[in-house]
Design a protein around this nucleic acid. Structure first.
Lengths: 216, 216
DNA sequence: TAGATTGTTAATCGATTAACAATC
DNA sequence: TAGATTGTTAATCGATTAACAATC
């Protein structure tokens, strides 16, 4: 077992392993090799072995990895062996879309509260179980329900203000869908899920429709 | 001016520069230095200078970058000086959310058609201008409207089938929101926008709520 | 001119991949 | 035993950062 600082790149691959392993489990596959994993996930087998070896000796030489055992281990590493409560701030279209993914997020991570600042939206049901609360109630609810992660799906201009609220309420991590670089204290982890960046950068890779000249 | 192979990391930063520069333009700031950009965007100034220098000498020593000029240049690099048409496949909650972002995507990239396989959704209006078409019409519409990018917001199991359809219709790039590794020919660029990965990996960085023991 | 800031080279840092002994 | 596959070290590759001459 190693215990250096684990790189972000490694951590981001863990959920990808977890998802595919869960699929294998459902198909009652009991063992898998780094080779097979790599083929399916478009990753180098050595990289997969190395990633996993950071956390322990989970495999068996000559055999591979026990699917069910590895799932348990990764879930533990990701702290998903306990339920993690999540707050959604912003009950617009995107927020609503995410709340419906609750079913997919069967990994012990659950959106347990939704907030919006628009009075018209307060009291609305989004998804089967979530009722939109006024944002003024965020602090109290976060503490009562032991919410540890916040998802921000509000418009750009409100994002920083919401982040401050979440941080003030004691949240530990934020998933930010607004295209803003949030300023947060160092103990709060922020991941940015900005699809406009993904989309616009795609254009770069299009075939040049126009002339292909090197103008200065 | 350089002209090696540009790394993916560089290309992904271009839209980030573009967005902030646009904000500066709106505020009538005419010049900006790599230092200021770096501060605001949480990036190393040297990295910003290097990124931009791959494409040309856009700055002026002792002065910085002309905001308006740099915007034009980046838009050109990203091929956003022409309109890029986009198709949305999957008119569920997420697809609907994205179609409303059309206003935000003022950068000449526009969702011009939406498709779904669910007969109940055909004919529905999503966003102000988009009417959901049956997926059988995808091939024809993509060709008629010169659509070059496809966004996949269908359930996991349908994602690969839809990708095949898009590729068959001659699309050049795909933004995939389904948590599936798509198999596509090498000339088709695929970006994955999988927020479940972002969300689950956040859990890793939470403070250990449980005991902090190194069990084997 | 003096101060500021670029473009670029060299140095550093980090991540991926290859290779292979250990061993099931 | 022979074949397969891990865990890990070493080699490679690529990306970030520091430093500075050029110059506005």
């Amino acid at each position: 077992m190693k215990s250096d600082k684990i790189s972000e790149a490694v951590v981001r691959r863990l959920p990808i392993y977890l998802r595919y392993l869960t699929e294998l489990l459902k198909r009652e596959v009991s063992t898998v090799s780094s080779q097979e994993l790599g083929q399916r996930l478009d990753l180098n087998p050595a990289q997969i072995r190395k990633d996993l070896a950071y956390f322990g000796d989970f495999g068996r030489k000559g055999i591979g990895y026990d699917v069910s055992y590895l799932i348990d281990k990764i879930r533990h590493i990701l702290k998903l062996d306990q339920q993690i409560n999540v707050a959604l701030v912003g009950a617009g279209n995107l927020g609503q879309a995410l709340s419906n993914y609750n079913t997919y997020i069967k990994d012990n991570m659950k959106i347990v509260a939704a907030f919006d600042s628009n009075p018209k939206k307060i009291g609305n049901k989004i998804s089967n179980t979530l009722v939109v609360q006024p944002i003024e109630q965020l602090n109290e609810t976060v503490q009562n329900l032991n919410i540890r992660i916040g998802i921000i799906t509000v418009p750009d201009i409100e994002a920083q203000r919401v982040a401050d609220l979440l941080v003030g309420a004691g949240i530990e991590a934020i998933l930010n869908f607004a295209p803003t670089i949030l300023k947060t204290p160092p103990h709060v982890r922020v991941h940015t899920a900005d699809f406009t960046t993904d989309l616009l950068s795609l254009a770069y890779y299009l075939e040049n429709g126009e002339d292909h000249v090197d103008n200065d």
